[in-house]
Amino acid sequence: MSPWESVIPNIGAADATRTAEAPMDSDAFGQFYERSAHSLWAYLARVSGDPALADDLMQESYVRLLCVTLPEEGEVAHRRYLFRIATNLLRDHWRRPGTTSIEELPEEFFSSSDGQARLDLHALLGPALARMRPRDRQILWLAHAEGYSHREIAEITGLGSASIRLLLFRARRKIADLLREQPVAERRAP
């Protein structure tokens, strides 16, 4: 405790409690979590190819969501903001020294199955997804699994809306070609 705190007792505790109110109460958060956790985990696991990392980043995303003053009200906006936080955390993870950049990761990294912790993308997503660039996979997932619009994807990823349109168009065409190369049985059980 610093000498100032002994002069002005409890200044920190009282004011901190007052300013530390979460953007939603515990019950509201519990309901929001129930409805969004599976989607967020699937996004993180599919894009990173690492379920353990997805677990960690998902928890951190929710904690950060609760620590900020949300710019918009409503579950849709909160959910979008949550995906934005998760996308930034993924990017930070790849940028950190010692971890490889998302653009430098070989596509085989995402399709390899070294141990139980690694998500078996070959069995779950199919070789087509494994051959996509990670950024394309992010965009495709947000657009086709989550149903976000170009504007929303731009907001989540930080890319320009016009770029999203072009990137998504190319990525969709590429993955459609790759999917068509596979037998129908594999495609139905991605």
Binding site: A22, S26, F29, G30, Y33, E34, A37, H38, S39, W41, A42, A45, R46, P51, A54, D55, M58, Q59, Y62, V63, L66, Q116, L124, L125, G126, A128, L129, L140, W141, H144, A145, E146, I175, L179, R187, R188, A189, P190
Partner: peptide, 23 residues
């Protein structure tokens, strides 16, 4: 259709952390 099927089948290997703990 492929992505939505993949989304439905994405199941974590262990239960999620309790929301109360995160809160």
């Amino acid at each position: 259709q492929t992505f939505q099927a993949a989304r439905e089948r994405s199941l974590p290997s262990r239960p999620f952390q309790s929301p109360g703990v995160l809160w």
